[in-house]
């Protein structure tokens, strides 16, 4: 099956960690289940969890920590 992508639901700033001192939610090779949090998007003074709507293994992140993201932009590639 083709690779699946997790898209950002919102425009804003993307973070891979819950706080600057915590480890990233997900790293390459980690398994991801439907509903798992893979990062945060900050917009309008609040942080919104980005949840995966697919399951698989983390292939690669397509945006860096603290990058600007657009709504619908692919953030993460999952492989089976």
């Amino acid at each position: 099956m083709a690779n699946k992508q997790v898209l950002s639901p919102l425009p804003g700033t993307f973070y891979r960690k819950p706080t600057p001192d915590d480890p990233a939610y997900k790293s390459e090779g980690d398994s991801v289940a439907v509903g798992d949090v893979i990062g945060l998007v900050e917009v309008m003074k609040s942080f919104h969890e980005v949840k995966s709507d697919a399951s698989g293994t983390v292939g690669s992140f397509l945006v860096e920590n603290e990058d600007a993201v657009m709504a619908g932009q692919p953030i993460l590639e999952l492989s089976d």
Binding site: L7, P9, L10, P11, M70, A71, G72
Partner: peptide
């Protein structure tokens, strides 16, 4: 609604 394409 689909993903936001432009505007806010």
């Amino acid at each position: 609604f689909d993903y936001l394409k432009s505007g806010a």
